[in-house]
Simulated assay, not measured.
Amino acid sequence: MSDNLLMRPASWRVSGLIPATELSYPGRIVGRCVMIGIQISLYYWLWKALYTAGGSESAQTVTYSALAVLLSRVRWTARSYSRESIPARIREGTIAYWFVRPLEARQYYLIRGVGEIALGGSIALLGFLVCLAVGIVRPPDSAAAGVLSLIGIAVGQIILYYLGLLLDLVCFWMVTNDSMKHIYAFAQDLLSGALLPLWLFPSWLNGLASVLPFKAAIYSPLSLYVGREPVASSGYLFAVQFFWCAVLAVCARVLWRRASFRIMVQGG
């Protein structure tokens, strides 16, 4: 029954939950855009100061850093404020309602997440167009690199979706995940290459990033875009991305199932 509900257009109204919440508070969206603009500007001035001679290396690094900031902030939305998030529902003791609806909890979370990514992706796309217009971001080296990087970016958002889901599901055992959110945010920014391009990392830290999913989510598609990785290597990069999607999807499925057995509905 739940699979049929997932296919009904009415069920996808849930995807508008987070966009409607955010658009109700335009100050939050404006503040987020200002923060992203400041971050990109700081990276631009930093790399321009370090690469005084300019050249392709400077343009490559500036482009990468700007795009990395935009991608890493796609899922900066109202989850921390909304009462309809897993942490908030568990704190209030109302998470049981997610498991008695006709639409399964995991499907409800998925549809809501689609709306979240759509909103964040729209802001990132607007930021990309502005950066492209003012010359901070350069176009991809080739049409093939642009198309392949776009596919990689989409798959990377699936990886980040599953990582965020696993972080939320931890609340079923820990009640709150506030401390873990801070650790996760730092780990994601560092090991995905959002703080610094991974080609600037020491070999041991780059090796650590290679065995974790963060690199596949952001660095891999952007390295194709800026030409750091050749188009010929895209097959391997996509294989790594799909591997992590499969692993994280299985883990999420198992945790959803185990979480459902920890819910007590009316004392049952």
Results as ranks from 00 to 15, higher is better:
A68K: 07
I40W: 10
Y108L: 05
E22M: 10
W45L: 14
A53C: 01
R73Y: 04
I90M: 06
T63V: 05
C33L: 15
L50A: 11
A59S: 11
A78V: 04
S122L: 14
G27M: 03
E22L: 01
I90G: 05
T77M: 06
S72H: 14
L125K: 06
C33N: 12
R101Q: 15
L50W: 08
I40D: 11
S122R: 06
Y43T: 00
L17C: 01
V30T: 07
I40T: 11
Y81T: 11
A53D: 13
F128N: 04
Y44I: 00
S41H: 10
R83D: 15
L71V: 13
S56Q: 11
G127A: 14
A20P: 01
A96G: 13
T61R: 10
L71E: 09
Y108V: 00
Y51R: 01
S122V: 12
Y108E: 09
I86S: 05
G120V: 08
G115L: 03
S41E: 07
E57D: 14
L70V: 03
P87L: 03
R106F: 07
S65G: 01
G115W: 02
A59Q: 08
A96C: 11
V130T: 11
W47S: 03
L132T: 13
S85K: 12
L103A: 04
V114Q: 02
A68T: 12
S80G: 08
S82P: 02
L46P: 04
L46M: 14
G127Y: 13
G37M: 11
L132Q: 13
Y44C: 08
I38K: 04
G121P: 08
S80T: 09
R83M: 10
L71H: 07
Y97L: 10
L119F: 10
L125H: 06
S58M: 11
S24A: 14
G31P: 09
G93T: 07
M35Y: 07
R112A: 02
S65Q: 09
R112E: 05
V62P: 00
A88P: 00
W45D: 00
L50E: 03
I29C: 06
R75Q: 13
I123H: 00
G16H: 02
G55T: 01
S56N: 10
L126R: 00
I18D: 00
G37K: 12
V69Q: 12
L50C: 01
W98D: 15
L110K: 01
L129D: 07
V34F: 13
I111H: 01
I123G: 01
Y81D: 14
I111A: 02
T61D: 03
T21S: 03
A124V: 06
M35E: 12
R112F: 00
L110C: 04
R79L: 15
L23V: 11
R91N: 10
T61E: 06
S72K: 11
A124I: 05
T94F: 05
G93Q: 00
G93W: 04
R83N: 14
F99Q: 09
I38Q: 08
S24H: 04
R112V: 02
Y81V: 06
A20T: 05
L110S: 02
I18F: 01
I117M: 08
I36V: 14
R79T: 08
R112C: 02
P19G: 04
Y64E: 09
F99L: 06
S82Q: 03
G37R: 13
P26N: 10
P19M: 08
S65R: 02
W47F: 14
S41A: 15
V100D: 01
